[in-house]
Write a protein that binds this DNA or RNA. Structure first.
Lengths: 357, 357
DNA sequence: CTGAAAGCGCTTACAG
DNA sequence: CTGAAAGCGCTTACAG
């Protein structure tokens, strides 16, 4: 393996100069830089990340924590984040919690991440008080996406879940529905994670504004999965007197609901309308009406906001990005308020007017 | 941040001993180990990965390369791999190629990975000759999952794609179908990636064994996506004289096909039967008949095969795994032949007998 | 703009 | 079973 002093020797300069030239520091003459780059190229030199990190104190790595990479929203976010990070010269360390409380604690509460990454991105990660303490001790920059409990000092990128749910429910109301059920997230996350409570709130608000009283018997707690939607719908139907419409807190729940309805001999939307939130890849295929949210854009934007103050990663000869300009005087911009990205109603075939009785 | 000499001082031993005790090396007395662990615990010590890697020459990190993390198979594989790696004390560096040829080359052909990871896992990654050369120069252990072009010296975990396709096609033949279309993968990957060519072969073999001649006009090339399946089906229908059944090379293609059929006013399975491969999360919801393949199990198994010869990762006090025993005499076992995991036909509602004409 | 030298925090022969 | 010391391959003040 070629090391930095091989390059230095070939280029006829010191290792310090090689280091500077390769990282694009401005204190290197053009001629010298050219020679160094040529030598590095010729020797196929790549810096040793370990050595660079140890000496430089930066890891050029970002930890990305998601609940479940296999769920549409998280996969889509990670894909966008991955592209941005690698393009910026950063590595992506993936942590998939997989619903295992023990794993969450190991990732968030140990000093593990501290010397391993320069920054942390938490995607919809439930955070309990002890986690917040641990994160504060880590003292690393971070950002959250769609996370209910925000981390003090960290920016957050998300949608307005309350408004999204209101729009969805309003769509059903506008079609003439009055018995509108809601299927939402895991009650176990209740304390720490607000996506599903926000969506429930929007649902209830829309009903109240229409002069209706939310019926607890139509309000189901489940999981953000197809299976969760399926089970909740089965239970809902078992209660008798089915709703004419279901607002599912996410498209995966909605898909499960559609199956359960079909299995029960009910047609969508003739017997029961269904609307979700997300605009999952498959929603168009299934004809599912939904509130579309920009998942990839949230990931991209969050990655950018996270990296901007860090500047470029640890780089080799193929660095292709310069640090983002800071504000005047070199001050970082003030902590941004949560960035709220827009959602929009996408009407497909799963919603329609209730049957005239 | 506590460093190793803080722990050494508190425990009253040398840093070398701390290092050994924390990594579970056998050459430390029980009493000493206890003291060291207690000191580390008390100081909340975590090793510096950079320093450990630089000194030890191991990164405790595995690169996982996937075409698209958002596709069901790859997300499911990564989830299983992530769990295994982290449980074994390894970090997971994620590379999502996203269909960008340039990215593939940057990941595979530069010396980038070399000092960054201890091993590489390539999931269904197209490999051209130049990539193979580059990988050989990297001289790192690796494993492939479902990758068409195998890497010399690397084991491979996969299913038998030819057999899976044969079974799928046979299912349609057994139902009485004779005009059976096939929708397969991207022709651009033809040279380097054999999943879709294998599945096409199985399809053709099954037809021939049934005494039928494969009809090129029923054989569509597309992409392994919902949209690809949709488009190919639209084109297929535009050719006139539609098939009575479609064998889609994966479930996502099958889903796109189902939509296109529905949009064209054709019922599944009454007018056209559809079968896929995968057993995607949504296939049950959609009633899609498919050839199920064990995605998570392939990931888990590949991770285990990859790590076994490496032993435990770089560890802190929370190491929870010992290196796997080697064969007698310390020799590694001979390179394993490809490990073929079983698939199975899952009959749902999307396939049935052709209409009697 | 450039270089000599210290230092980042570990692990690993080597010696005992 | 344990320790002193070298060394892993960079980056960073510091000096010029």
């Amino acid at each position: 393996m070629t090391r930095i002093d091989d390059v230095a020797r070939l280029a006829g300069v010191s290792t310090a100069t090689v280091s500077r030239a390769l990282r694009g520091l401005p204190t290197v003459s053009a001629a010298t830089r050219r020679r160094v780059l040529a030598a590095a190229e010729q020797l196929q030199y790549a810096v040793s990340p370990s050595a660079s990190r140890l000496a430089g104190g930066r890891t050029g790595t970002v930890a990305v924590v998601v609940p479940r990479i296999t769920r549409w929203f998280f996969g889509t976010v990670v894909e966008a984040v991955e592209e941005f990070l690698h393009h910026s010269g950063y590595d992506l360390l993936l942590y998939n919690l997989g619903g295992r409380e023990q794993v969450r604690q190991r990732v968030l509460r140990t000093a593990n991440l501290h010397k391993r990454v320069d920054a942390i991105m938490l995607v919809a990660t439930p955070l309990r008080p002890a986690d917040l303490t641990a994160l504060a001790e880590l003292d690393l920059p971070g950002i959250t996406i769609s996370s209910g409990s925000t981390v003090p000092g960290w920016p957050c990128v998300r949608i307005d879940d309350v408004a999204a749910a209101r729009t969805a429910t309003r769509h059903l109301l506008d079609l003439g529905h009055r018995r509108i059920a809601h299927i939402s997230g895991d009650p176990a996350d209740e304390l720490a994670f607000t996506t599903h409570t926000d969506r429930r709130r929007g649902y209830q608000e829309a009903l109240r504004r229409a002069g209706l009283r939310p019926d607890p018997r139509l309000d189901m707690e489940s999981q953000f999965t197809i299976d969760g939607g399926n089970r909740a719908t089965v239970e809902l139907l078992a209660r008798g007197e089915p709703p004419t419409a279901i607002f599912a807190a996410c498209d995966e729940i909605a898909m499960g609901a559609m199956t359960a309805l079909r299995d029960a001999g009910l047609r969508v939307p003739q017997d029961v309308s269904v609307i979700g939130v997300d605009d999952h890849d498959l929603s168009a295929v299934l004809g599912l009406t939904t509130i579309a949210q920009p998942a990839a854009e949230q990931g991209r934007l969050a990655a950018r906001m996270l990296l901007d103050p860090l500047g470029v990663g640890i780089v080799g000869p193929d660095a292709d990005r310069v640090p983002a300009p800071r504000g005047p005087g070199g001050y970082s911009p003030a902590p941004a308020p949560p960035v709220i990205l827009p959602t929009r109603l996408v009407v497909r075939e799963s919603t329609g007017p209730p049957r005239a009785n």
